[in-house]
């Protein structure tokens, strides 16, 4: 099964809707609640990053009997130092983002924690591609 979502960059109220819909689909497919929760958290973190830092983007979800693969692509500013960005507490979030309850520097570490495999390719000035994989038992 393949799902596709376009995420609007300036629709803060709708941000997270794609993650919400994926969570619903996984539930309908009978995926274990523990696995759904892991995927929902890592995808939501990635979707919020896309909205808050990159003015939105596109999400592709591939569901097979063995794995769930979520690819998020944006054309945002990119991440200059990925190693630094992966450190807990490191954040480039503006005061505005922090007032919304985000920007604690936990997003990327959390995505890594809750995904079985995480790969991030980013180029400054061009954008970022995040791939989250969860293996199904």
């Amino acid at each position: 099964m393949n799902l596709h979502y376009h995420v609007d960059g300036d629709a803060f109220i709708a941000a997270g809707e794609a993650s919400s819909q994926v969570k619903k689909v996984l539930k309908q497919l009978g995926i274990a609640p523990h696995t759904i929760r892991k995927i929902a958290i890592s995808m939501y973190e990635a979707e919020m990053n896309m909205v808050l830092h990159a003015n939105g983007g596109d999400i592709h979800v591939e569901i097979t009997p063995h794995k769930i693969c979520i690819t998020l692509k944006d054309e945002g500013p990119g991440i200059p130092d990925l190693e630094l960005a992966m450190q807990e507490g490191y954040s480039t979030a503006s005061q505005e983002i922090r007032e919304l309850g985000f920007g604690a520097g936990m997003g990327l570490p959390n995505m890594k924690k809750y995904s079985d495999e995480l790969s991030i390719r980013s180029e400054v000035g061009k954008g970022t591609e995040v791939e989250i994989i969860a293996w199904l038992p």
């Binding site: 803060f12 109220i13 941000a15 997270g16 993650s19 919400s20 969570k23 929760r37 929902a40 958290i41 939501y44 919020m48 919304l100 309850g101 985000f102």
Partner: peptide, 11 residues
């Protein structure tokens, strides 16, 4: 804000 509800939903 609405993201409190979204966060709760994911968790």
């Amino acid at each position: 804000n609405p993201q409190v509800i979204r966060t709760a939903e994911m968790m």
